[in-house]
């Protein structure tokens, strides 16, 4: 369920930081006369902007994954069933739980990069949010992806779980097959 993935990503600490940045951009960019006309206050902009990005971001993920799903159904990954069944292993579950902040950060970066790029190309007068676009180091440091990846490598390196080893092996193959298709 992409809507839930996106909502969870926005509820994460990095999601909240990006939302605050979006709020800053909206407050700096909104036309004051228009705000008066619409009886909108500056503090209404952030939650409403967040809802807009969540709605459009969910639509974007639905569209992108529909494309990927169509391609993988044409070229199914041979060990898909085994990969799926390994997800019930306790070690794999723990690994996937540890991985969640990284998955969420990737979703958030993807959404805001596309949002910023569209706004730039379409001349929407809204400052960019994505820390990569703006060079916002403080915000970039809040991205948990690198730290999570290190923790995962350490966890996988120390683990003696055969299920986890096989899961990682198949995940890599599935990823390569998906990229190829």
């Amino acid at each position: 369920d992409k809507a839930m993935l996106v909502r969870e990503a926005f509820a994460s600490p990095y999601g909240k930081a990006l939302t605050a940045e979006l709020g800053k951009s909206l407050r700096a960019s909104a036309d004051p006369a228009c705000l008066t006309d619409k009886a909108l206050t500056a503090d209404q902009l952030e939650p409403r902007g967040r809802d807009i990005v969540i709605t459009w971001g969910t639509r974007m993920l639905d569209g992108a994954f529909a494309l990927i799903d169509r391609q993988t159904s044409d070229n199914p990954f041979a060990s898909a069933a085994e990969l799926e069944s390994l997800k019930s292993s306790a070690d794999v579950k723990r690994y996937l739980a540890m991985e969640a902040p990284m998955r969420q950060a990737k979703i958030l970066d993807l959404i805001f990069e596309h949002f910023d790029r569209y706004n730039l190309i379409s001349r929407v007068r809204l400052g960019a949010v994505s820390p990569l676009a703006t060079g916002n180091e403080a915000l970039l440091r809040l991205n948990p992806a690198d730290a999570t990846e290190e923790k995962l490598e350490e966890f996988a390196g120390k683990s003696r779980s055969k299920a986890l080893k096989r899961f990682l092996q198949l995940s890599e193959q599935a990823g390569a097959a998906q990229a190829a298709s």
Binding site: C34, W56, F115, Y118, R125
Partner: peptide, 18 residues
């Protein structure tokens, strides 16, 4: 182009385009 049309929603928040 996943965000094509978002400017209409942003205009509701007084964000101008063009």
């Amino acid at each position: 182009t996943f965000f094509k049309g978002v400017e209409t929603d942003l205009a509701e928040l007084c964000i101008r385009s063009g």
